[in-house]
């Protein structure tokens, strides 16, 4: 199992210096990405999910950003603290990235074809003619109709969905092992989203891509993910397989998120809100980041930050402590196979 780990992140911590003081955007984040699988990092805006992956590919400007702890290894090679030259060598080539806003990620003054060809020329050392053939092949792989004509067009001539496809073609041009998709469908309509998700899935199958999918949409997570990490206030509060997260939720926040979405049940189940708003990361609360909004809060939660309980399915909640009062949530971690006692 461990041999197919592509990317491993340990205890990553990132903070930002701002006008108001330093913001601890990412605190003690660890996860593993297995070959050919999709890891979804899910959370609300400001929870640190984008900062986490942008740190991996060196997209966080430093300063104001600062990595205070942790390591990230791509097939055993350390990624953090690389020079920009070294970064350029693996970014794009070994890790591809697509963004929410494809329009601003592409150069508006170059044709789509030229932008993809440029990557091929630089990273793959292809000849111009070979690159051109490859561009056409890539564009048809991402199901852009009439690739010979479309490759001569500029980004503004593309619709949002087509632009995201072009962005995907660009990001997989150098056959990376890892594709980071940062909210790739948030700006798209639901029918276009379905197309893009289908496309990502088929690319994963045909190329054995490992995908890190950043999203806030539990529907997209359920559709795409094998593994899921739920982030809240800069920390991973629960992680496990997609079934663990949806059917054996072990953290009150995950439960809350699920209850806050109207499901496809015939009767209108009561919609359950999570009261309050996420904490201010200028001064993260002393105890558990979620305690102020948690329905099961205990005295302990207000003063002591909980560790991650569990092994394959982990949750950062004191309810899983051996001495905690019996609570339905506790059964969830134990129910997961492969979880020893902690």
């Amino acid at each position: 199992m461990s041999s197919d780990i592509i990317l491993e992140v340990d205890n990553l911590a990132v903070e930002f210096a701002t006008f108001g003081g330093s913001v601890q955007a990412v605190r003690d984040v660890s996860f593993k990405l297995h070959k050919g699988t999709t890891l979804a990092i899910v959370g609300e805006s400001g929870c640190g999910k984008s900062v986490t992956v942008q740190t991996l590919v060196g997209l966080i400007p430093m300063p104001p950003g600062r990595i205070t702890a942790g390591s990230a290894r791509l097939r055993g090679e350390e990624l953090l603290g690389l020079s920009s030259d070294q970064l350029n060598r693996y970014r794009g080539k070994r890790i591809g990235m697509i963004f929410q806003d494809a329009m601003s990620a592409l150069n508006p003054t170059m044709t789509i074809g030229d932008q993809i060809a440029e990557t091929l020329l630089v990273h793959m050392g292809m000849s111009a003619a070979a690159a051109r053939q490859e561009v056409i092949a890539l564009l048809s792989q991402v199901q852009i109709p009439e690739p010979e004509r479309r490759m001569r067009q500029y980004p503004f001539e593309f619709s949002g969905g087509m632009l995201q496809r072009a962005m995907i073609a660009l990001s997989i041009a150098c056959q990376p092992e890892v594709l980071i998709a940062d909210e790739p469908t948030t700006a798209l309509d639901v029918t276009i989203q379905a197309q893009i998700l289908q496309l990502l899935e088929s690319l994963q199958r045909s190329r054995g891509l490992s995908i890190i999918l950043i999203t806030h949409d539990l529907g997209v997570v359920a559709r795409m993910a094998h593994e899921v990490a739920v982030m809240y206030a800069g920390q991973i509060v629960e992680q496990g397989s997609v079934d663990d997260i949806f059917y054996r939720s072990a953290h009150p926040y995950t439960l809350g998120l699920k209850a806050a979405m109207p499901g496809k049940t015939a009767q209108k189940a009561e919609l359950h809100e999570i009261p309050g708003s996420p904490p201010d990361l200028f001064a993260p609360p002393a105890g558990c980041g979620f305690h102020a909004r948690c329905p099961h809060v205990m005295q302990l939660c207000e003063s002591k930050a909980p560790p991650l309980f569990g092994a394959a399915h982990q949750a950062r909640c004191w309810l899983h402590h051996a001495q905690a009062p019996t609570h339905p949530l506790r059964q969830q971690l134990l129910a997961t196979t492969g979880n020893g006692s902690c």
């Binding site: 619709s159 969905g161 087509m162 309509d189 639901v190 029918t191 276009i192 989203q193 379905a194 197309q195 998700l197 289908q198 949409d217 539990l218 529907g219 997209v220 997570v221 359920a222 559709r223 993910a225 997609v242 079934d243 949806f246 059917y247 699920k258 979405m261 499901g263 496809k264």
Partner: peptide, 26 residues
């Protein structure tokens, strides 16, 4: 098309879904 392309927060349901043909753009 609109309803079938909306992903549900339910992995089993999503695994069982037949991929609907969602073609073209508005």
């Amino acid at each position: 098309m609109l309803i079938s392309s909306n992903p549900e927060p339910d992995p089993v349901h999503e695994r069982q879904r037949k991929d609907v043909i969602v073609s073209g753009e508005i």
